[in-house]
Amino acid sequence: MLAVATLPDAITFAIAAVIAVVGALGVVLSRNPVHAALMLVMTLFGVAVLFVEENAQFLAAVQVIVYTGAIIVLFLFVIMLIGVDREERVFADGFNARRVLTFFLGLAMLAEVLLLGHQRWVTGAHSVTGTLHGAAANVSDLGHAIFTTYLLPFEVTSALLVVAVIGAVVLARRHAIGGETAERPALAAGEPGSGAGTDDASPLFEGAPSGSGVDQ
């Protein structure tokens, strides 16, 4: 079904695009990691609206559930737990080689996106599965695609994820397995013995906003 760009379509697109772009700029420009994460949420929302606009409703919902609901929450969780410094000046030392390199790499990236984005050999065929048969067919089309044509990539991806999870667990618990007494870094709020209310709360606290407010 051909998406005819009508006025409501155009307005929705404009609003969602502005939300997405402003959010993306905010991620890059905000100094506070928590603010950056929130801006990322905004971008993901804008993109989700664009998905709905493109009749990919399932993708929109999954994007919100997985990225906004789980991944960014994990980001924030880590930021709060390990207490990343509130303000980190990447280019504190003025004009240097790294800055120049960053500039040119960014330029190359932009050129790449602009030049190659239109090429069919880069993005693959324009339409992989054909047109959608209405929005309700989202799920069944996707299911058929994943479990027939793209079964191998799907299974390989899930195997990769499982390996990653196991790897993370093994890395985190290396001390305990090595026969040493379990000296895991106690999750301040996670372990009842060392948890809330004790001194362990102090490293946690570094992530929270401190005396200097945002607007100063």
């Binding site: 709060m80 301040a188 709020a189 809330a196 709360a201 946690l204 606290f205 992530g207 929270a208 401190s210």
Partner: peptide
């Protein structure tokens, strides 16, 4: 997190 206080932060992490 935004309360800038210890106990609320613990609550939100939980």
């Amino acid at each position: 997190w935004s309360s800038g206080s210890k106990y609320p932060l613990l609550g939100s992490v939980r």
